[in-house]
Amino acid sequence: MRPAGGGGLGSAFQLIIAGALALLILVSQTIFIVPAGTVAVVTTLGKVTGGQRNPGANFKVPLVQAISYFDVRTQVRPEQFSTLTKDLQVIEATATVKYAVKPVEAGRIFETIATDNSQIYARVIQPSLLKALKSVFSQYELVTIATEWNSISELVQDKVAGELSKFNYVIVQGLDLTGLQIAEEYRAAIEQKQIAEQQLLRAQTEVKIADQEAKRYEILNQSLDDQVLYKLFLDKWDGQTSVVPALPGLAGGSPSVIVNGRR
């Protein structure tokens, strides 16, 4: 036979264990950790409540509130594209855009355009990027695009940043254009144009140098007179040369020259 009251103690112990487990589950459902480099958006019955939750321990109401995470670190996404130039030539290249989600806009992003972190590029970045690429490249002919690639890359970055600033969801931190592909016949024409431009630049430089030399000699000739020439001669004379000009400025016309003689 079992001792009297033994079943009561066992039941009480089981109730304590069950209560502790329930409390542990409740706490685990109440506290959530936001990883570094992300922010969390809390929704209460499907509605965004409060601002973004920053990295660290945070609290929510179990069963009532849900959590969505957004990465706010710099993202790097390459986008292969093809578009038409001003002279209706097809080009292909890769645009690599660097961007970051604004942490304070995470709640508005969830409400208006993307409920998941993976949706941001396709719904926010990509449309503006492709629009900017087509807008910029349609303004230039193929030869100009090939020869001014770096400058056009900066124009595209400014255009993308301008497009995205209308929505104020993200910050554009950089954009690189690489891998330009064009037809071979146009590549040869571009190379010939570059060679012609280099030859023209070289010719212009040589003309400028010749003009500068001519002006320098003109100024030098204007500054030289008999007195200056005589002083230059004396500075260089070794005292033995038998041809010595007479002192300029003497009466009787032009200065005389002494040859193999003394005075």
Rank of each mutant, 00 (worst) to 15 (best):
T94D: 04
S135G: 01
E79C: 10
T83K: 11
L23P: 01
D176K: 09
Q198G: 02
N168F: 02
D158A: 13
V228C: 05
A196P: 03
E213V: 12
F167W: 10
V76N: 10
V207W: 00
T147V: 09
K231R: 12
L224R: 11
S28M: 04
L133D: 01
Q75Y: 00
A203E: 11
R262T: 15
Y230T: 05
L21F: 10
I209T: 08
T178V: 13
V34Y: 03
L200V: 11
K134F: 00
S165Q: 14
V64S: 05
L229C: 07
R108F: 07
A214C: 00
K166L: 14
V172E: 00
S82L: 04
V41G: 01
V170T: 12
V72I: 15
T96Y: 03
Q173T: 09
S153M: 07
S165N: 14
V244F: 02
R77L: 08
G7R: 12
Q222S: 08
A114D: 08
N58S: 06
S151N: 11
N260S: 13
Q240G: 05
P255Y: 04
K231D: 13
V160S: 04
L220R: 09
Q240D: 02
E111N: 13
V27C: 03
G162Q: 08
A189L: 14
I219A: 14
I113C: 03
I182E: 02
W149R: 08
N117F: 03
P127Y: 09
V104L: 08
I109P: 02
K236Y: 11
L224C: 04
F137I: 08
V124L: 02
T44G: 06
A114L: 04
K166V: 14
P3G: 12
S135K: 12
Q240L: 09
V207N: 04
F59M: 03
Y186I: 10
Q29E: 07
I182S: 09
K208Y: 07
V156W: 06
L155V: 07
Q52L: 07
V143T: 13
N168H: 12
G253H: 06
V136R: 10
G19E: 01
Q204P: 05
N117W: 02
V97F: 00
Q75A: 12
F13W: 09
L24Q: 03
F167V: 15
G252T: 05
G6N: 00
L15T: 09
N54I: 08
E163N: 15
I171A: 08
V48I: 01
E163K: 10
E206P: 01
F13P: 02
Q198D: 05
P3F: 13
D87A: 10
Q52V: 13
G51M: 08
Q75H: 12
Q126M: 06
L177T: 07
F167T: 15
A251C: 00
G37V: 03
G10T: 08
L23C: 10
A106E: 01
V160R: 00
A210P: 01
A106T: 02
K134M: 07
Q212D: 11
T74V: 11
Y69M: 15
G252M: 05
Q139C: 07
I125T: 04
G261A: 08
Y230N: 06
T96H: 04
L63K: 05
A95P: 05
L15N: 07
L130V: 14
Q14Y: 09
Y140I: 00
T44L: 01
T112S: 12
N58C: 00
V42K: 03
S128W: 02
A57M: 11
V97A: 02
V243N: 01
A188F: 02
